[in-house]
């Protein structure tokens, strides 16, 4: 069984993003702490570790697209998370904003409070927008949720 690279990246990305969102939302404030039972320490560690994985996945994806561009490979990558149009472009732009604001929050936390506050605001509001967009994306691709039908041998023989 051959599994496509874009397919693997898509689902790895999805799992990492859902865990990032879960740990991130728990840290937004006292209203949201219940999501992880106010275990902010665990949320913080998992958010930072997963953020590193997320950045690595992003750079792998960008590198893959650059190699494809150099090779003039115009084949369709239906599962790929980044691309030049539609939801792929939206994901690409939002991912870059997430990474930049995340880096600002991480680096400037002790040095520049204004930059940290602005980055936190953008990071938080963008999370809400992206989660809503993912719900829309699931709705558009809901055929993936349909359970596979069992092929009855007797029935298939009669069909023949």
């Amino acid at each position: 069984m051959k599994i496509r690279f874009d397919f693997i990246i898509h689902w790895l990305w999805t799992i990492v993003f859902s865990l990032l969102a879960l740990s991130g939302i728990a840290m937004v404030g006292p209203r949201y702490g219940w999501v992880l039972n106010y275990d902010i320490g665990a949320a913080d560690i998992s958010h930072r570790v997963l953020a590193a994985v997320f950045v690595i996945l992003t750079f792998i994806s960008i590198g893959y697209e650059v190699i494809r561009a150099i090779r003039n490979d115009t084949s369709s990558q239906a599962w790929f998370v980044i691309g030049s149009g539609g939801y792929q472009l939206f994901t690409y732009i939002t991912t870059l904003i997430f990474i930049i604001t995340g880096a600002i929050i991480w680096i400037c936390m002790d040095a520049n409070m204004a930059a940290t506050a602005f980055a936190l605001y953008v990071h938080e509001k963008l999370t809400y927008i992206v989660i809503l967009s993912v719900i829309w994306h699931i709705y558009m691709k809901c055929h993936a949720l349909v359970w596979p039908k069992k092929v009855q041998q007797g029935k298939s023989k009669t069909m023949k």
Binding site: W11, T14, I15, S18, A21, L22, I25, V28, R31, Y32, W34, V35, Y128, I131, L132, V134, I135, I138, L145
Partner: peptide
């Protein structure tokens, strides 16, 4: 994964 995203969306709505 789908359920986790719906949980996230509802968690945001409930919390806000």
């Amino acid at each position: 994964i789908t359920i986790s995203f719906f949980f996230l969306a509802t968690a945001i709505i409930i919390s806000s």
